[in-house]
Simulated scan of single mutants.
Amino acid sequence: MKLSIPDADTLWATLPAARRHEVVLMVGTEHLDELDHVNNTVYLVWCEAAARAHADRLRMGTEALRALGAVPVARQHVINYHRPALLGDRLRVRTALTVHAGVRSVRAYTIDRLNDGDPPEQGIRLAECQTEWVWVDPVSGRPRRTPVEVIRRFGFTVEGPGQEQG
């Protein structure tokens, strides 16, 4: 699956609530690098934290997934940076499950600045990310189709055995 970052804002408005989540955070000194802006790797940490919060909200955290016999592991990350985040910035990290097929799922993320003076609803886009996840058996580490309960809980429909639909 070759990743290309979709128009996350359009996706956000059209996806069911179970497939999307957002968190708001403040940039602290621990996020900064020697150039006094947020280090590139921190954006990825924030994206993963938003994904975990989404899973926890739906009661599909790591232990629940392990009990169902499949956990996601990252296969590929793509991040486009537009502007730097700075100390004291108020940020919104949105994540949306955009695709699910067999053993793979794709999450899109947006990171927007929401400081005073920024456009109130949309903010200022700082970065977009997309991660391709592969579902694996937590014991063997081998790829595994996603359990139906996981597919349903995250807002995808199941049409028949092994046939998921967005």
Rank of each mutant, 00 (worst) to 15 (best):
R144K: 13
D112G: 08
V78L: 04
A108I: 00
A96V: 14
D116K: 10
V158Y: 04
L44V: 15
S105Q: 13
T98E: 12
H37W: 11
R144S: 14
A17P: 12
Q122I: 07
W135S: 09
H21T: 02
D36R: 10
V139N: 06
V99H: 13
V158Q: 08
H54G: 03
V23R: 14
Q165M: 11
P161H: 12
T10G: 08
V45T: 15
I5N: 01
V103H: 07
Q76V: 06
L3V: 06
G123S: 10
W133V: 11
R145H: 12
L68G: 08
N39A: 09
V24K: 05
R125S: 13
Y43D: 00
R90W: 03
R144L: 10
N39D: 11
A50M: 04
V148G: 07
P84S: 15
T157V: 15
R90K: 12
G123E: 08
G160A: 15
T95M: 07
R57A: 15
E34L: 12
W135M: 05
E164Y: 14
A70E: 09
A51F: 01
S140Y: 10
V23M: 13
R113G: 13
W46P: 05
H77L: 08
D89P: 09
D89T: 03
A70F: 09
L11M: 14
V27S: 02
T14R: 15
R144Q: 14
D36H: 11
Y81S: 12
C129K: 01
P120M: 05
N39L: 02
M1A: 14
A67T: 08
W12K: 08
A127S: 11
P138T: 04
G160E: 13
V71C: 05
G69A: 08
P147C: 03
L58Q: 03
G61M: 01
D112L: 04
L68V: 06
P16Y: 01
G117C: 11
R90G: 07
E63F: 01
P6I: 03
N115H: 01
D89L: 02
H31L: 05
N40Q: 13
T62L: 14
F154M: 15
W12P: 08
Y109R: 07
G123Y: 04
P138C: 04
G155I: 09
E22N: 10
D33L: 00
D36L: 10
W46I: 01
P6H: 05
A67D: 12
Q130C: 13
V150S: 05
R125L: 15
A50T: 09
A127E: 03
W133Q: 09
V24W: 02
P6Q: 07
S4I: 12
S105F: 03
Q122A: 13
P147M: 02
